[in-house]
């Protein structure tokens, strides 16, 4: 087993991550403007922008879902209890004592168990909640007469707003966790260049060198 610098985030994954980030920031900003939580943008402009950004994000998600399944990337998000407790314990105690992060990322598992679990939660609960409520919100005129006088829209809006706050909280935690372990820069860089240092098995190493030479950097002494 050796540590090598390999492509961990492919071009599409990086494109997906950063365009999703941009769209989510636009949606949060315009969404809270529509809600009236802040008044930095007019209702009309924010309403239009929010709708376009949401439609763009839905298209992006459709591609991302397709990508997860066709490339097998979904396996990175399969929950595991193996090491979960140790990672949690590290963030709660070990980190203050200067302990090493208990997880070593591998080619097959690029996220630590806690990370994978929270991304999975985001993908199967939060994102569907916001997009289903958002689509209901957007298509309100199609069902408004069926529920006339029952004010279902308020329920839809409430789910949408709770999801939005939850996503905002996720983002705060997500950005903060970039400062732990390696430096902030070391954490962000792989999502820009695609390369990260991971432990490869001999089989993985020889496979990459043989078949995907563009995905692995020549061996250098790291640190």
């Amino acid at each position: 087993m050796s540590t090598r610098r390999v492509i961990m985030f492919t071009k599409f994954e990086r494109f997906w991550h950063w365009s999703q980030m941009t769209l989510i920031f636009i949606l949060l900003f315009t969404g809270f403007a529509i809600r009236g939580t802040h008044s930095l943008m007019s209702f009309e402009t924010s309403g239009m922008l929010h709708t376009f950004a949401a439609l763009a994000l839905i298209v992006l998600w459709i591609f991302a879902i397709f990508w997860h399944f066709t490339t097998g990337t979904w396996r990175h998000y399969v929950p595991t209890s193996n090491g979960l407790f140790r990672v949690a314990r590290y963030y709660a105690f070990g980190i203050f004592k200067g302990e090493h992060h208990p997880y070593r990322k591998t080619y097959q598992r690029k996220h630590n168990p806690l990370q994978a679990l929270s991304y999975l939660g985001l993908k199967i609960f939060l994102f569907p909640a916001i997009w289903v409520s958002g689509l209901l919100y957007l298509s309100y005129p199609m069902w408004s007469n069926l529920t006339a006088g029952k004010n279902w829209l308020e329920g839809v809006a409430t789910i949408h707003v709770i999801s939005a706050f939850a996503i905002l909280i996720f983002i705060i935690a997500h950005i903060y966790l970039l400062t732990t372990g390696h430096s902030f820069k070391e954490h962000v860089k792989p999502m820009i260049t695609g390369y990260d240092d991971v432990d490869l098995t001999e089989a993985e190493e020889s496979y990459l060198q043989q078949d995907e030479p563009g995905h692995i950097k020549p061996e250098v002494t790291i640190k």
């Binding site: 529509i34 809600r35 009236g36 939580t37 209702f43 309403g47 006088g149 004010n151 829209l153 308020e154 809006a157 409430t158 707003v161 709770i162 939005a164 706050f165 905002l168 909280i169 705060i172 935690a173």
Partner: peptide, 24 residues
């Protein structure tokens, strides 16, 4: 009897949401 985005919001949900964000 009708929910109007930007107007109908009574602020409670937003206060709770902002509180949760601040606690985070």
């Amino acid at each position: 009897g009708v929910y109007m985005p930007g107007q109908s919001n009574n602020g409670t949900l937003d206060k709770l949401g902002i509180l949760a964000v601040l606690l985070t």
